[in-house]
């Protein structure tokens, strides 16, 4: 009896140990390169080449200044911010309006419209780049930040409607009923009563659109020509050619590009996880 119990205990502690080793081991594989980037950005390139894995002797932010000023990161950063924020706000605004109607009411065609919007979740829209390029060219929007904003906003609509219409559907109807009796119009009910109630969903939608747009490389590569309109990912391709031998600055550039995302992640971990598992979590 006693032998059996210690056997079971030993088995449990072995699996526990193996689990811990796996969990921490993989965490190290994830974190090591990220920490090394930070450490390397603070060291001069000479030092990195002598010893690639090491801590900065006298940490210096020179590399960040070089990336920011000489490598044009100030320009790219501003463009990325302008384009991403505008697209996210535009997509969220129009998606919230449409989701309200689709989530709250049934009318002729409402089912079809919902399906039509949700189909976009599965469409590989990068494959539409040739007609899109010609369309924007006809509108005079090639090499124009507005063109990119419109395209980005369009790509954000399916996911936003997917999340927001589900939220609108769940709100109790008594809320709008009371307001309607008081004579409130549809826009008032939407703006004053319903919208504030779906704030958590709005946060999810905003955060979840921000990340892929901030990181997108394909569309600005094709749609923007002048370097003074480039976003960070496109700027990065030129940067890695020009600063090939200046690793310290390269690492600083990687950090500058990623910094807003880290901030978002720290502020909105919950929304990101909710967005990733949308449709699966109970």
């Amino acid at each position: 009896m006693k032998g059996q119990r210690t056997g079971a205990l030993r088995r449990i502690s072995w699996t526990t140990l193996a689990t811990q080793v796996l969990l921490w081991g993989y965490a190290a594989i994830v974190l090591f390169p990220l920490l090394l980037v930070v450490s390397s950005a603070l060291r001069p390139t000479r030092e990195i080449f002598k010893n690639p894995v090491g801590l900065p002797k006298s940490p210096s932010f020179d590399s960040f200044v070089r990336a920011w000023e000489q490598a044009n990161f100030n320009v790219y950063f501003f463009n990325s911010l302008l384009i991403t924020v505008s697209s996210v706000l535009l997509a969220t605004a129009v998606a919230a309006l449409a989701s309200y109607m689709l989530g709250r009411y049934t009318f002729t065609g409402s089912r079809f419209l919902t399906a039509y919007f949700l189909a976009g979740l599965m469409l590989p829209f990068r494959l539409a780049i040739v007609p899109l390029f010609l369309l924007l060219n006809n509108m005079g929007l090639i090499d124009n930040r507005l063109g990119l904003i419109l395209v980005y906003a369009a790509t954000g609509i399916p996911f936003s409607i997917f999340v927001l219409s589900a939220f609108f559907r769940q709100l109790p109807r008594e809320l709008s009923e009371a307001a309607r009796i008081d004579g409130a119009g549809e826009f008032t009910i939407f703006g004053r009563i319903m919208l504030p109630l779906v704030r958590p969903a709005l946060a999810t939608v905003i955060v979840f659109q921000f990340v892929p747009l901030w990181n997108d490389f394909f569309f600005p590569l094709v749609l923007l020509r002048s370097t003074n309109k480039w976003t960070l990912p496109v700027g990065m391709t030129r940067f890695f050619g020009e600063f090939q031998t200046d690793w310290s600055t390269l690492f600083a550039g990687l950090i500058i590009t990623t910094l807003p995302l880290i901030l978002i992640f720290l502020l909105a971990t919950k929304q990101i996880i909710a967005g990733l598992t949308a449709g699966i979590e109970k």
Binding site: V94, M101, L150, A153, A154, I157
Partner: peptide, 16 residues
């Protein structure tokens, strides 16, 4: 309510 999203999505995504 629906037209802005519909137009943006159709013109820049579905139609191309």
């Amino acid at each position: 309510f629906i037209l802005p999203a519909f137009l943006l999505y159709t013109v820049f995504m579905v139609w191309p």
